[in-house]
């Protein structure tokens, strides 16, 4: 297995996959804690539209993805008070609109069309050292922010109203949390694609949640599970000539099902 990771393109793919998956897995715990899973998928699609817009217009796709995702975060962060439309419906609209527009933009651009499939399914094998450099710097900044405000992010995600009454700047903390999620999604989109990014946000955190009994362990198990799945997924993708993104998502799903069955068995066995 180690042999294939001697190839330079596999090394960048592995590194890119590990950084992205671990960041998404860590932030995914907050996504589930805040119950904003639909926001995760909508933002992933907004970022995908950003990349498609960049490829269409010739502007740097990462910058386009970042600007659009940031706009999406600000719009979705603002309290929604229209009683005739639920926030879920608005997220559904955002997802459908961005997905359709991204497909149209890619279809109308012959140069982008070849990369269109990667945008959706993701192909880590195209990861460059430049991508890794940007991702690495962003990771350091994001993890520094989360190290400083970890307790605050947990409290605001768990119970925003009470956090506010204790004097915490709940709105600002909420925004910073959304911002870090948005940055990771927009940076990951170009190299990993929508399916991989969204799956990395949700599935490892679910594995952590059903496997661990302490909040700290949930974060740890999520990150370890994502790293393991990326490594196995890349190996399978290389061996069987499969697209890397969906293969990793398949491994995520398998691990989740196994964890779930193990949990069921433990519950049944205890009884």
């Amino acid at each position: 297995m180690l042999e294939i990771f001697k190839e330079p393109f596999m090394q960048t793919a592995l590194l890119g996959g590990l950084i992205t998956a671990c960041l998404c897995a860590y932030l995914g715990v907050f996504v589930i804690l805040k119950r904003i899973v639909f926001m995760g998928i909508a933002l992933s699609q907004v970022a995908a539209l950003g990349v498609a817009s960049g490829l269409f217009s010739g502007i740097n796709p990462i910058i386009c993805a970042f600007v659009l995702t940031l706009s999406g975060i600000i719009l979705l962060w603002i309290p929604f008070t229209e009683k005739n439309i639920s926030k879920e419906s608005l997220l559904g609209f955002t997802y459908a609109f961005c997905a359709a527009t991204a497909v149209i933009l890619i279809a109308k651009n012959p140069l982008a069309e070849a990369r269109g499939l990667n945008l959706i399914s993701g192909n880590l094998l195209y990861t460059t050292w430049q991508d890794l450099k940007i991702l690495g710097i962003a990771s350091i900044l994001i993890m520094s922010l989360h190290t400083i405000f970890f307790k605050e992010f947990i409290f605001v995600s768990f119970d925003r109203e009470t956090a506010f009454t204790t004097g915490l700047k709940a709105n600002l903390l909420d925004f910073l949390l959304y911002l870090t999620i948005g940055i990771v999604i927009s940076l990951s989109m170009k190299i990993c694609g929508v399916i991989f990014v969204f799956a990395s946000l949700i599935i490892p955190a679910m594995i952590g949640l059903i496997s661990a009994r302490r909040i700290g362990m949930i974060f740890f198990v999520s990150c370890i599970a994502s790293a393991l799945c990326v490594t196995i997924g890349l190996f399978l993708s290389f061996t069987w000539d499969l697209p890397s993104g969906p293969t990793i998502v398949g491994v995520y799903s398998l691990l989740f099902i196994l964890s779930f069955l193990l949990r069921l068995w433990k519950t049944y066995y205890k009884k």
Partner: peptide, 16 residues
């Protein structure tokens, strides 16, 4: 959904 203990939940209020 999350396995916060009673102690952890009470401690949260002292975050600030």
């Amino acid at each position: 959904l999350f396995p916060f203990t009673v102690f952890e939940i009470v401690m949260m209020a002292r975050t600030k």
